[in-house]
């Protein structure tokens, strides 16, 4: 893979943004994040252990016996993903702010939205990796098969919506005085539609509900993803400007 520095340089040389340069810039941001994470493994291990702990707590808080499990599995999964996701979102923007990396990123002669999409994709990758590990663990612990194509689709759509709003809000919250503690307060009320629709759709797939019943929340998820990615794309400039 190309080094981040050369990647940015190749964009710079182009002068006027070429067609491929936007995607190149996005890829450079994603690659930078993945590589930094691969070296430190701070964020990933924290998210993973945290989500396993949440499941453990839910196990005793809700007394997940066979009967309850059927109805609450979707809820437990999404609460876990939401909490673990907040951890990751906070961290991914905090490291940029702490060591002045954000200024470096902003100096790059690329469209600001490339930084946003790069951050969204890397956050999404972290969240999906955690989910990919949590699912089999949950399946094994509670003898429920969670590997259904429909459920995977819902998790993908839900994570996209959650991360796209979360990345925008975490870019805002790191610039405030209260920093980390503000992100969940900002994010949860705005992300409620995506969480509710995801729980409803997941539940539908897990209980084998009729297609018509699942289609509605699924459409809502898609609508949420499209609307909020579009808005975040338009306003991200205002968040990072100095």
């Amino acid at each position: 893979m190309v080094d981040k520095a050369t990647e940015i340089k190749s964009v710079k040389v182009d002068g006027t943004p070429a067609r491929g340069s936007f995607i190149q810039a996005v890829a450079a941001v994603v690659w930078k994040d993945l590589r930094a994470e691969f070296r430190s493994r701070e964020l990933f291990s924290a998210m993973l252990v945290f989500s396993l702990l949440i499941i453990l707590i839910f196990n005793f808080a809700l007394e997940l016996d066979v009967k309850t499990r059927r109805s609450v599995t979707a809820g437990v999964l999404w609460a876990t993903f939401a909490f673990a996701g907040t951890l990751g979102l906070n961290r991914s923007m905090a490291i940029e702010k702490d060591r002045g990396c954000m200024d470096g990123l902003l100096l790059a002669p690329v469209d600001r939205s490339a930084i946003y999409f790069g951050k969204v994709i890397s956050n999404l990758i972290f969240m999906l990796i955690v989910e990919v590990i949590v699912l089999p663990v949950y399946s094994a612990l509670y003898a429920i098969n969670l590997f259904q194509p429909g459920l995977i689709l819902v998790i993908l759509l839900g994570s996209i919506g959650y991360v796209s709003v979360g990345t925008l809000l975490s870019a805002m919250s790191v610039q405030t005085r209260t920093r980390d503690i503000l992100l969940p307060i900002l994010l949860f009320p705005v992300a409620i539609p995506v969480l509710l629709a995801a729980v409803k759709a997941s539940n539908g797939f897990l209980t084998g509900a009729e297609w018509a019943e699942i289609l509605l929340p699924l459409n809502l998820l898609i609508a949420y993803d499209v609307i909020f990615i579009a808005v975040a794309f338009m306003v991200f400039d205002h968040v990072v400007e100095e």
Partner: peptide, 17 residues
Amino acid sequence: AIYALLGGLSAPLTFFA
């Protein structure tokens, strides 16, 4: 302004959800 905009957009979606 950004947060008020996000909030204004998500409230109707919450209702539908």
